[in-house]
Amino acid sequence: MALLTDELRAWIGREVHYPAREELGRASIRYFALAMGDDNPLYVDDAYAQAAGYPSVIAPPTLVCETCQYAHRPPDEDGYIGHEWHLPVPDARMIRAGNDYEFMRPVLPTDRISVTWTLADIAERSSSRGGTQLFVSSVATYRDAAGAVVAINRETLVYQPLGAQ
């Protein structure tokens, strides 16, 4: 049975914008570094960061692409508050295939980052476990308060049917 229906195809090209709700903030930066056990002083020590040529502490590079800080909604049934297309794919397990991040400049605690998600493509491919699965490619573009792009995240998720294998 084909997973990629016309109904699903119609989702390709959709776009959702999440405006910045506040500055990224020093607390978010320190929290992330602490959670990863990353003791790099660039993330917590202004004097150190300035000696390295930055205006202040900076965010760990991938934080901007990993955080759902842009989100502002109650958790869904999976507990998730971040961006999700909620595609009409019945009884599937969603697995990450990969991410490709591009960074234009270091992100600062004073940055107000907005995010635009675009559904770039949906493709159905055969699975090594038999049957087929859906590859959903999205692009998240992160912009600062001036509208300049600070990072791009190309993400591919796989929807694996949980039915009989």
Binding site: D38, A52, G53, E66, N99
Partner: peptide, 24 residues
């Protein structure tokens, strides 16, 4: 992604900048 970035920056040093990181 954070693990890869940290390993790369700990090796390269504080003035280094990650321009691209793609992982599968």
């Amino acid at each position: 992604g954070a693990v890869f970035a940290r390993a790369a920056l700990d090796w390269a040093g504080p003035r280094a900048f990650i321009a691209r990181l793609g992982f599968k």
